[in-house]
Every structure is written in C-alpha cells, then in structure tokens.
C-alpha cells in the first residue's frame, strides 16, 4: 500500500471515529426518549382498558374516612371524612374509596400514594381476603424508605378497614404479580390484617389464596429446574 493510500485510510478511520463519537450520544438520547414514550403509552393503555369505576350518581352520598398523611412529615396518618356516592357492593365500594385515596388529598404533602399510580383491579374472596392490584407506578414512583412505604400500605389498609367492613385481609399486587417489596423495604409477599387494631401488620396465617396457588406452582417449577440441573 502506497504512503498516500495509508494516509487516506488513516484519515477515513479517524473521520469514522469522530462521526461515531458524535452520533452515538444522540442515538442514546433518542432510544431513551423512545423508551419513555413507550412506557407512558403502556401505562395510558392500561388506564384506558381499565377505566376508573364511575360512581353511580343515583347512589346515596355517604361519609367515608380516607387515611392520608398528616402533612407534618411525621409518618402519621390522619383520617379525613369525605362524602362519596357509594355502592352497597363491597367490591365497587372498595374501588371507589381506593380511587379516591389515589386521587389524593387537597394538600399534596399529605399524599401517601404516588399520583401516577392506578388501581388496576380489586377482588374480594369469600374468606374476606381482598386482592388489590395496582399499576407499577405504586412501586416505582413512591419515595423510597421504610417510613414512606409503611405509610402507603397503612393508608390503604386503614381506609379499607374504615369503609369496607367485609375486608378482613389485604393482599397487594403490582401489575397482576406478587412482588417481594413495595419499593425495596416493606414486604408484600404476605397478606396484611385489616379490621384489627394494627391494620398494616402482615398476616401470615392463613396464607393468602394467591400464595396458596402460587406455592405449588413454584414448587413444580423448582422440581423441573432441579431435574434440568441434574
């Protein structure tokens, strides 16, 4: 190869390196932006698929207690009485109060749940176990910490305790799945006692129906994994 060709080749390579150095950060920004857009779209789609249960205007307005934060940053809950048109059906009633809880109080400092979190589904099993399924924002947008996560769980449990007497236990799912913790601290693998003096304490006995279903499946999966490893 002639010296001139080498110079051209080296120059070309340098130009390619410079072009890549300029292009890749821009490409990374574009990818991040696209990911954010996709995430928002997915969240919006979920909300559209599962619209907030509209309160029937014909239902009589009843006074209910919502447990939001005290607003003093002291980790305490404060009951606030609001009037809502409530259904007699415990599931509809629970959805209405939880959606109101999610909507938040007048004072944003007293909010216990992230503003972008949504209630995706709510079930009430015959044994009094309530299964509340929230969107991922419940875990990802909540301020990280034991106090803030405990406050969130307590506000859900105590609001259900006050307004839906049929609920005895509470199981919290995130996007249809059992998760280990809310945001790295509070254990969500167990059910929480409701309608007891301390609402937000876990209730390991009896196991939740969700766990009861999941346990044999998990064992079967482990058996298969074991067999594969052998």
């Amino acid at each position: 190869m002639s010296p001139q060709a080498r110079v051209w080749l080296a120059g070309g390579l340098l130009a390619a390196v410079f072009a890549a150095a300029l292009y890749f950060p821009a490409l990374r920004r574009q990818v991040r932006r696209a990911a954010q857009v996709t995430e928002k779209t997915a969240e919006q789609a979920r909300r559209e698929l599962l619209p907030v249960t509209p309160a029937a205007s014909s239902e009589p307005k009843l006074k209910v207690k919502m447990f939001w934060g005290s607003g003093n940053d002291d980790g305490m809950l404060k009951p606030v009485t609001v009037e809502l048109p409530l259904s007699n059906d415990p599931v509809l009633r629970a959805k209405e109060v939880l959606n109101t809880l999610l909507a938040g109080p007048v004072d944003p400092e007293a909010r216990t749940l992230p503003p972008d979190a949504a209630l995706l589904a709510f079930y009430l099993l015959p044994d009094g176990t309530a299964v509340a399924d929230f969107s991922e924002a419940l875990g990802t947008s909540i301020p990280s910490g034991i106090q803030s996560e405990q406050l969130a769980v307590d506000s859900i449990a105590r609001t259900l305790e006050a307004d839906v007497p049929q609920v005895q236990r509470l199981k919290i799912l995130v996007h249809g799945q059992e998760v280990e913790t809310l945001a790295g601290h509070i254990d969500l693998t167990q059910t929480f006692r409701v309608n007891t003096k301390v609402a937000g304490t876990p209730d390991a006995q009896p196991p939740s129906p969700v766990s009861a279903i999941a346990a044999p499946i998990e064992k079967a999966v482990q058996k298969i994994e074991n067999a594969v490893k052998r």
Binding site: D73, D74, G75, P143, S144, G145, I146, Q147, S148, L151, H185
Partner: peptide, 13 residues
C-alpha cells in the same frame, strides 16, 4: 442501616 426520603430531618427511627 437506611436513609429515608421522608420524615423529620435530623431524626432516626
């Protein structure tokens, strides 16, 4: 050991 993102600044629980 944890550091919270809430609570009265300068307190420990």
């Amino acid at each position: 050991l944890h550091i919270a993102s809430t609570g009265l600044a300068g307190t420990a629980r």
